[in-house]
C-alpha cells in the first residue's frame, strides 16, 4: 500500500510544481494613470478643467531653521511633478476638440450624439433630423473620432503603452467622455 501511495504523492507534487512553475506574463497596463490622464484631458476639452498651476506640495515637514535658510537660499526652481501627459500634438488636438465641442454640445444635450463604450462618439437617435443636419453630425463625429484616435495613440505613446493596447486607452477614455455629457 505504501508503495502505491508514493507515486501519487509524486504526481501531486509534480502537478503543483508544474502549475506554479507556469510563467504568467502580465503586460503592465497603467490603467489608473490612463484614467487620470483621461480625466484631465476630457475635462480640459469639455471645459471643466481642474485647477492647474496649483503649487505642488513639497511634502515633508521643514524646521524653522530650514525655513529661515530658505529665505536666504537661492530660489530653487521646483520641478513640477511630471504627471501630465501632454505634448504639442495633444495640445493641438485638445484645442481642436475643444473648439469642436462647442459645435457639438447642443446636439449632446438633445441626445443626438452619444458616447460609446469604445471611446468614440456615435450618432444617437437621429431619426427626426433632416439629412443635412445628419450630414453635419456625421462630419462632426467623424472628425471628432479621427482626432480621438490620434489622441489615444499619442497618450499611449506618451505612457509607453503598446500600440496594440490603444483600444484599452480608448475604453478608459470612454468613461470620461460619458461622464462629461451626463
Amino acid at each position: 500500500m505504501h508503495r502505491k501511495r508514493a507515486p501519487l504523492k509524486l504526481v501531486f507534487l509534480f502537478s503543483v510544481l508544474f502549475i506554479f512553475a507556469c510563467v504568467t506574463i502580465n503586460i503592465y497596463f497603467p490603467a489608473e494613470k490612463v484614467e487620470s490622464v483621461a480625466d484631465k484631458i476630457v475635462h480640459e476639452i469639455r471645459g471643466k478643467t481642474p485647477p492647474q498651476g496649483a503649487p505642488a506640495k513639497t511634502g515633508g515637514k521643514h524646521s524653522g531653521i530650514e525655513k529661515a535658510l530658505q529665505i536666504f537660499s537661492p530660489a530653487v526652481a521646483q520641478a513640477a511633478e511630471v504627471t501630465d501627459v501632454s505634448n504639442p500634438t495633444i495640445r493641438a488636438l485638445k484645442k481642436r476638440m475643444r473648439k469642436r465641442y462647442a459645435q457639438m454640445k447642443p446636439y449632446y444635450t438633445k441626445g443626438l450624439f452619444k458616447e460609446g463604450d469604445d471611446g468614440y462618439v456615435a450618432l444617437g437617435n437621429a431619426g427626426g433630423l433632416n439629412l443635412k443636419t445628419r450630414r453635419l453630425l456625421n462630419a462632426l463625429a467623424e472628425a471628432e473620432n479621427k482626432d480621438r484616435q490620434t489622441l489615444y495613440s499619442e497618450v499611449a505613446k506618451a505612457l509607453k503603452i503598446s500600440p496594440d493596447q490603444v483600444d484599452k486607452v480608448a475604453t478608459i477614455f470612454a468613461k470620461q467622455w460619458q461622464q462629461s455629457v451626463r
Binding site: 492647474q52 498651476g53 526652481a77 520641478a79 513640477a80 511630471v82 501630465d84 501632454s86 505634448n87
Partner: peptide
Amino acid sequence: WNPDNRISFTDMLKR
C-alpha cells in the same frame, strides 16, 4: 545638483 533634472513643459514656459 540634480542629475535627474526634469522640467515639465509648462514649468519651462513659466520659467
